Simulated scan of single mutants.
Amino acid sequence: MGSGTRGVIRRLAAGVAVLTASGVLALAAPGSAQAAAVHACAGRKVRTLSFTTGSVQVFKQGRYVCAVTYAKNPRGTKPMSVSVQARGGRPWRIQKRATRQVGPVTVYAGHRCVWVKGSVGRTAVSSGWILC
Rank of each mutant, 00 (worst) to 15 (best):
G15V: 05
I94V: 14
A17D: 04
T106Q: 13
T5K: 14
L12Y: 00
A40M: 09
V84E: 03
Y64C: 04
A109S: 13
S81L: 07
G62C: 05
A21E: 06
P91R: 13
C132N: 07
Y108A: 10
A36E: 02
Q57G: 04
G15P: 07
A29D: 10
S55M: 02
C113Y: 10
T5F: 12
R63N: 11
V114P: 10
Q101M: 10
F51S: 11
R11T: 07
S81N: 12
G31I: 03
K96G: 01
L12K: 07
V38G: 10
W92S: 14
G121P: 00
A42W: 00
A29H: 12
M1S: 01
V56Q: 12
G31R: 15
A21L: 14
V116L: 05
L49Y: 02
R100E: 03
A109R: 14
R10I: 07
Q57F: 01
V105D: 02
G128W: 11
W129H: 03
Q61T: 03
Y108L: 13
R112S: 14
K45R: 14
V107H: 06
A35G: 05
G121T: 01
Y108N: 11
L49M: 11
R90W: 00
G118Q: 09
V24Y: 15
V8S: 01
A37R: 15
L25M: 12
G88K: 15
S83G: 02
V116G: 06
G89F: 02
L25T: 01
A29V: 00
R112A: 11
R122K: 09
I130F: 05
V120I: 06
T69M: 09
P74D: 01
L49V: 01
A29P: 02
V24N: 09
I130W: 11
G54P: 00
G88P: 11
K45L: 04
T20I: 12
V46W: 01
A26Q: 14
P79K: 13
R10D: 06
R47N: 05
T48V: 05
K60Q: 11
S126C: 02
T123Q: 13
K72H: 07
C66M: 09
S32P: 00
H39R: 14
R44H: 08
G23F: 12
G89K: 15
A33T: 09
G4Y: 12
C41D: 02
T123M: 10
P91Q: 05
A124L: 09
A36S: 08
R44M: 07
L49S: 06
Y64G: 02
V24W: 14
A35V: 09
K117M: 03
R122V: 08
V58Y: 08
C113H: 12
W92K: 15
A28N: 01
I9C: 06
G2D: 08
R10H: 05
V114L: 08
L49W: 00
A86G: 07
T52F: 00
S127T: 01
L131N: 11
A33R: 15
A14D: 09
Y108R: 14
A109P: 14
R90V: 09
A67C: 07
M1R: 10
A26R: 15
I130N: 04
H39V: 10
K78F: 02
W115I: 10
V105I: 13
P104G: 04
A21G: 12
R100D: 03
Y70A: 07
G88F: 06
V114E: 04
S55K: 15
G110Q: 13
L12C: 08
M1T: 01
P104V: 04
V18M: 14
G4I: 04
R112V: 04
T5L: 14
